[in-house]
Amino acid sequence: MKTLLLAFIALTLTTPLALAKDTKPLRVAMDVPYAPFGERGPDGKLVGFEVDLGNAMCQEITGQECDWVVQAWDGIIPGLLARKYDLIVSSMSITEERRNAVLFSEPYYTTPSLFFTRAESDFDQANTSDTRIGVQRGTNQERYVAEMHPDAKVIRYTTTDDMYLDLTGERLDAVFLDAPVGIKWGKDDPKVVQHGDFIKEPARIFGQGVGVAMRKRDKELAEKVNAALDKLKNNGVYDDIMNKYFDFDIKL
């Protein structure tokens, strides 16, 4: 009887510890559409590079895929700070300004930015006076155009879909955004073409790569996120996901 009692006590003491491992899904915010990083598929479900990578990361941490929350870009950090979700996985560049508000993981990808125009456009980066350039509000690209092309007319958008419609509808002369987004436009629509070379500098604007954002107090979560991303990069899962969406290496 004494032996059975001791065994029961030991079981009740150890079982809660065994269940203490993360099992609750992580709520993860993303701004869509931002193909090929994230968009809604024909069935309404989220698809894209960051969706696949985020789900793989969440699986490593909790054993479940992410609980995705669609959030407009200009409210995505306020939503995190208001505890509407746990993480942001949405092509957020790591900049000093953002570090003042959130805690970042190690960077998990980097891509350059590009100007895109219509095929017949005479857009000239060296002379943008009175040129209509579309950017997404709150992005590094918005800051770059505002600083480097102060003579241009900067048109700010909430979504990249609206930028695409205004570019192809001849209401913009050019757009400036993450290169893979515009490259996908060009693959789907020959009217959209790349203009000029990749732009990655200055670092004070474009940051040090893209990271997962968390609240500053969530240091333990950040350790788990970094460990999961590191494992995915080392076991080949990251490369498999990357090669599904890109023709070039974006891994840091």
Results as ranks from 00 to 15, higher is better:
residue 37 F to G: 03
residue 7 A to V: 13
residue 55 N to E: 04
residue 142 E to H: 08
residue 180 P to L: 10
residue 156 R to V: 02
residue 162 D to P: 01
residue 60 E to K: 14
residue 170 E to M: 07
residue 74 D to G: 06
residue 16 P to H: 11
residue 232 L to W: 01
residue 61 I to R: 00
residue 243 N to K: 14
residue 7 A to E: 09
residue 203 A to Y: 07
residue 222 A to K: 14
residue 22 D to K: 10
residue 31 D to P: 03
residue 177 L to T: 10
residue 190 P to V: 11
residue 21 K to V: 12
residue 215 R to Q: 05
residue 147 E to Y: 10
residue 219 K to P: 03
residue 107 P to Y: 05
residue 28 V to K: 01
residue 173 D to L: 05
residue 117 T to S: 04
residue 25 P to N: 07
residue 238 Y to N: 03
residue 100 N to T: 12
residue 246 F to E: 05
residue 55 N to R: 05
residue 107 P to M: 08
residue 27 R to I: 10
residue 61 I to Q: 01
residue 82 A to R: 15
residue 161 D to E: 13
residue 165 L to A: 15
residue 243 N to W: 11
residue 211 G to R: 03
residue 137 R to H: 12
residue 112 P to C: 10
residue 165 L to R: 15
residue 56 A to P: 02
residue 214 M to L: 15
residue 95 T to L: 04
residue 173 D to K: 06
residue 42 P to D: 15
residue 205 I to V: 14
residue 237 V to Y: 00
residue 102 V to Q: 02
residue 76 I to F: 01
residue 127 N to H: 14
residue 227 A to L: 04
residue 148 M to K: 15
residue 111 T to L: 09
residue 20 A to V: 06
residue 223 E to F: 04
residue 108 Y to R: 00
residue 65 E to W: 01
residue 89 V to N: 02
residue 53 L to E: 02
residue 70 V to E: 07
residue 73 W to I: 03
residue 147 E to D: 14
residue 125 Q to V: 12
residue 31 D to S: 15
residue 165 L to T: 13
residue 136 Q to L: 11
residue 67 D to W: 01
residue 83 R to T: 13
residue 126 A to S: 12
residue 196 G to M: 09
residue 44 G to F: 07
residue 141 Q to F: 03
residue 244 K to N: 07
residue 213 A to D: 02
residue 166 D to S: 07
residue 209 G to L: 04
residue 96 E to M: 08
residue 201 E to V: 08
residue 168 T to C: 05
residue 162 D to L: 12
residue 200 K to T: 14
residue 99 R to D: 09
residue 152 A to Q: 05
residue 248 F to E: 09
residue 114 L to Q: 11
residue 7 A to T: 14
residue 30 M to H: 13
residue 171 R to M: 12
residue 7 A to G: 06
residue 250 I to V: 15
residue 13 L to F: 08
residue 62 T to L: 01
residue 170 E to V: 00
residue 69 V to E: 02
residue 106 E to N: 11
residue 91 S to C: 04
residue 48 G to K: 08
residue 50 E to D: 08
residue 25 P to R: 11
residue 230 D to W: 06
residue 46 L to E: 03
residue 101 A to W: 09
residue 131 T to G: 00
residue 76 I to S: 01
residue 135 V to K: 03
residue 169 G to A: 09
residue 240 D to W: 08
residue 225 V to A: 02
residue 36 P to A: 09
residue 228 A to R: 04
residue 14 T to S: 14
residue 205 I to G: 00
residue 177 L to A: 04
residue 236 G to S: 12
